[in-house]
Design a protein around this nucleic acid. Sequence first.
DNA 1: TCCCAAGCGGAGTCTGCCTCCGCTTATCCT
DNA 2: AGGATAAGCGGAGGCAGACTCCGCTTGGGA
Lengths: 177, 177
Amino acid sequence: MRADARRNYERLLAEARAAFAESGVEASLEDIARRAGVGIGTLYRHFPTRDALLEALLRDGFDALAAQARDAPATREALAAWALAVMESSTAYRGLTTAFVTTLRDESTELYASCKAMNAAGTDLLSRAQQAGGIRPDVEAPEFLTMVYGIAWADEQTRGGRTERLLNLLLDGLRPI
Amino acid sequence: MRADARRNYERLLAEARAAFAESGVEASLEDIARRAGVGIGTLYRHFPTRDALLEALLRDGFDALAAQARDAPATREALAAWALAVMESSTAYRGLTTAFVTTLRDESTELYASCKAMNAAGTDLLSRAQQAGGIRPDVEAPEFLTMVYGIAWADEQTRGGRTERLLNLLLDGLRPI
DNA sequence: TCCCAAGCGGAGTCTGCCTCCGCTTATCCT
DNA sequence: AGGATAAGCGGAGGCAGACTCCGCTTGGGA
């Protein structure tokens, strides 16, 4: 990669992070390019889609969450802590949860691949917690993840700031009967 | 209201219903006007915002849901049935749940007013069910509604078709401890 | 130093939102 | 019936943002 290309790539990432933090994931791409001091064509060459840009920003966080799930003990508390971390990272930028969930339908994207490893680790943690008796055994991982993402989204939208409380209500209720 | 105005109003509503059903609530308004055989200006005169159009389409359903909540007995089962009906109506068009929840933040819209009566009736039903011992008493209505809408949204997005199952998991878990 | 492919950038196209205002016509009045 | 008039119409036009295309520039190897 040529030095100027690398430089532009980095600047774009930095400005994208700032713009997303400020205006949410729907921030104008033309604006990001302008702020980075490059043409819009350059942005599109490095990141062909908005999702590609998001993925580059979020990859490290996903990896960390996957690792957290793998290292966690098989308890309801650990599952709750992991889910809370997922919810918090999915609300890092306004609209992120929506981007996640809609992208998770399209298996061809980079963002999907990144998310998938994290969700797989979460799936494993759930099933370990179930075997250890912390969670009722009939709940399936996609059901659990759907509820977690849904609650994160709704709390973000209503600006509730109740993520942890809602997650606790949910997990309390998923105890074995 | 002049006869031609009334006619246009009705045609716009009919075409909007069709377009939303087909393409989701983000369907192009210019397209709806075109299909109704009127100018875009006419659409905007009758329905100044997309929400106004949605509200006109959904009002009757909201009223019915409010009535259902008022007439329901104070049981967990009745609350579940009402919540399921809410979830189903909020997924009548693709993207509707999002429109609901984001609009519920803006108290000045018509859609807000319509939704509010329905949510108020649901709030009352929840509190009756709590008094009757069917639901744990520390859950507050906004928390409950947030979770219900969130789950409806996530299930719609993932095309899960598990709305009822997820709602049952949630309400099972909200039994008094 | 020269060369050329990697890389740049922005003009141009497209789509959709929304406003504004000159024209049309339904309806009322005589 | 026919004229007056305000209610209603409609689309041109301005704006914003996504995305493409291609002629120009330049980093860096030979």
